[in-house]
């Protein structure tokens, strides 16, 4: 029962942050601020929806002692680690590409990168 509540809470948090990430992409003014919404919110939201799956697998593992739920748990955790590392690095690559194409940040109060990268 408590486990079901935890799963529901994790799914709610995950969906909330995923939705915020998508709305941020639609709402923010330029590519850098959109990247903020994309990397942080959707990564965090996806970690929480995956955490719900991991909790479900853990609960079923204790209930049935079936080995396949241990596999589901392990693979979900590996997927979460892969997601967290690749998203941050991908965001860095996109930001660098946008910079090299000459997009400057909208509404910026300071820009220490005025000269284009060598």
């Amino acid at each position: 029962m408590i486990l079901n509540l935890l799963i529901g809470a994790a799914i709610a948090i995950g969906l909330f942050f995923n939705a915020l990430g998508v709305f941020g992409i639609l709402r923010f003014p330029d590519v850098y601020t959109r990247l903020h919404a994309d990397t942080k919110a959707t990564t965090f939201g996806s970690i929480f929806t995956s955490l719900a799956v991991a909790l479900y697998a853990l609960g079923r593992l204790f209930e049935t002692a079936d080995g396949q739920y241990a596999t589901l748990l392990l693979h979900t955790l590996v997927a979460v680690v892969v997601l967290a590392i690749t998203n941050a690095t991908g965001a860095h690559a996109i930001a660098r590409a946008a910079r090299r194409r000459g997009h400057s940040p909208a509404q910026a109060v300071v820009d220490k990168l005025e000269e284009p990268a060598p």
Partner: peptide, 21 residues
Amino acid sequence: MAKANVDVAYRVITGRIRPGI
């Protein structure tokens, strides 16, 4: 990371930003 997400949530909802590099 959890704090970062609450922060981004606040920025998305209010739209109050002051960007810079």
